[in-house]
Design a protein around this nucleic acid. Structure first.
Length: 319
DNA sequence: CAATAGGACCTTT
DNA sequence: AAAGGTCCTATTG
């Protein structure tokens, strides 16, 4: 009972190796927090210079993609809050095997959405780079604080550590007391409004940072089991990958019932195009993609749900 | 008319 | 051989 907004993330997360700080060393740092920034030795701290000297447009749009619908956070970033800036190094040194001729440009693509188009690929590139940086930060923080990456597993002590960390990161006044008795689950269930109630000064920043954190974890999940071991990706894995990034692909494929593994392809052409991109198969279309899905019927990987609907399928073994 | 279901054959890994 | 990709026919909502 009670809707769990982060169901699916509550399974154990072993991927963060638990080395690094002990409770004691953390307390030590905590003691110093008023004198000089003890985190200066760590290279996760906000990179404000990056904000000032460059690529502001790109920077913002990256985060726009990364975060949830609410644009408020982006606005705040531009107002000078030291928001988890990502070093934009190696921006253009992204080499990429260019064997994939970009899809024929003159397909009558007058989709009412009028966005997407063939920028998907470069968007994906930039985005995965940003996500990569965020993930690095998260992993480093986890090692340092000796907490798991999944906020829903945090106890009240973990939450306090994360608070402290975030306060340092953004140079916020100490607000941990206002969240003292909360577990990670509590925290994740809270709205931005509730954050602000508990801490008018830094509530929204804390909320936003937790949001980044949660987005990052979703990425970790999908990367953990699909891109692991470099095997050629399977169609069902690819679909699940898209489904796990609703803020990116929710407009072309989404869960109807995540618990039962039922999903709907909202834009068959778009999903097929993405699949073709991934497999370097420019001629991919939904006819062929769906044929491949149908092969899964026999194998018991995907089936049609009990009440069959157009473009709706179901994973036989939901996560 | 697009989606669905499968058979048949081919290509890639 | 496994996992699609390609092509095609027939059926269905």
């Amino acid at each position: 009972m009670m809707s769990n907004p982060v169901s699916g993330l509550s399974e154990n997360t072993d991927f963060v190796s638990r080395i690094g700080m002990t409770e004691d060393s953390f307390v030590l740092l905590e003691r110093n927090r008023c004198s000089e920034d003890p985190w200066d030795t760590v290279d996760i701290k906000p990179n404000i210079e990056a904000l000032e000297r460059g690529v502001p447009g790109l920077y913002l749009s990256c985060y726009d993609m990364l975060l949830t619908e609410e644009a408020t956070w982006v606005v705040k970033v531009s107002e000078g809050s030291p928001a988890l800036a990502v070093p934009m190094n190696r921006m253009e040194s992204r080499e990429e095997p260019e064997q994939c001729p970009v899809i024929d440009s003159q397909e009558n693509g007058l989709s009412p959405g009028l966005e997407g188009q063939m920028e998907d690929r470069s968007l994906e590139q930039v985005q995965s780079m940003v996500v990569g940086e965020v993930l690095k930060d998260i992993e480093t923080a986890c090692k340092l604080l000796n907490i798991t990456a999944d906020p829903t597993e945090w106890n009240t002590g973990n939450v306090q550590k994360w608070m402290l960390w975030t306060e340092h990161l953004y140079r916020l006044p100490h607000a941990g007391k206002a969240f003292q008795e909360l577990t990670g689950k509590d925290l994740c269930a809270m709205s931005e409004e509730e954050f602000r109630q508990r801490s008018p000064v830094c509530g929204d920043t804390l909320y936003a940072h937790l949001d980044i954190w949660k987005s990052g974890i979703e990425e970790l999940w999908s990367e953990a089991d699909s891109s692991c071991s470099g095997q050629p990706i399977h169609l069902w894995q690819f679909l699940r990958e898209l489904l796990l990034k609703p803020h990116n692909y929710g407009r072309c494929i989404r869960w109807l019932n995540k618990e039962k593994g039922i999903f709907k392809i909202e834009d068959s052409a778009h999903v097929a195009r993405l699949w073709g991109l991934r497999k370097n198969r420019p001629a991919m279309n939904y006819d062929k993609l769906s044929r491949s899905i149908r092969q899964y019927y026999k194998k018991g990987i995907i089936r049609k749900p009990d009440v069959s609907q157009r473009l709706v399928y179901q994973f036989v073994h939901p996560v």
